[in-house]
Simulated assay, not measured.
Amino acid sequence: MNHAPIPSVDVRDVPADAFLLDVREPDEWAAGRAEGALHVPIGEVVGRAAEVTERAGDDRVYVVCRVGGRSAQVTQFLVAQGVDAVNVDGGMLSWAAAGRPMTGDTDPAHVL
């Protein structure tokens, strides 16, 4: 069994033009997300893996969820598929706390 650490990155080190994969559920996505992120709920990742790898090309995939647990699982899966993927530590909660740009489908004062 492979016990290699899951690659991760601090939210402040995610480049502004990074390919961000958001694996949260639709209600979480609607409440607040990073502009330009690809939304693939965790339950759909395996079935949509080709879409993710095609969109990523040779770029690193920055995987995010609410706090980092689900995205760590997806990162582990993607790395096993040969994708250059890293987990965003602290997820969207850290993203918002760091003041990174966000958008949502609800009142902007209540994003996330």
Rank of each mutant, 00 (worst) to 15 (best):
N2T: 10
H3K: 10
A4N: 15
A4P: 10
A4F: 05
P5F: 14
P5A: 15
I6T: 15
P7I: 03
S8N: 12
S8F: 00
S8E: 15
V11C: 00
R12Y: 00
R12P: 01
V14C: 04
P15W: 03
P15C: 01
D17T: 06
D17I: 11
F19E: 03
L20I: 15
L20H: 01
L21I: 02
D22R: 14
V23T: 10
V23S: 14
R24C: 09
R24K: 15
P26S: 08
D27P: 09
E28F: 07
W29Y: 09
R33P: 05
G36D: 11
A37K: 14
H39S: 04
V40K: 05
P41E: 14
G43R: 11
V46F: 13
R48T: 09
A49C: 12
A50I: 12
E51R: 03
E51M: 12
E51N: 01
V52M: 07
V52E: 09
T53Q: 11
T53K: 15
R55F: 01
R55P: 00
G57A: 13
G57W: 11
G57E: 12
D59G: 10
R60Q: 15
R60A: 06
V63S: 01
V63L: 07
V64K: 07
C65V: 04
R66L: 13
V67D: 03
V67G: 04
G68A: 14
G68R: 05
Q73G: 15
V74E: 08
V74T: 12
T75A: 03
Q76L: 12
V79D: 00
V79M: 08
Q81P: 04
Q81A: 05
Q81R: 11
G82E: 04
D84E: 02
D84R: 09
D84W: 03
A85K: 02
A85E: 00
N87T: 07
N87Y: 00
D89R: 14
G90W: 01
M92W: 00
L93D: 06
L93P: 05
S94Q: 06
A97T: 13
A98P: 05
G99F: 09
P101I: 11
M102V: 12
T103E: 13
T106E: 02
T106R: 12
A109P: 03
V111R: 14
V111A: 10
V111I: 10
V111Y: 14
L112V: 05
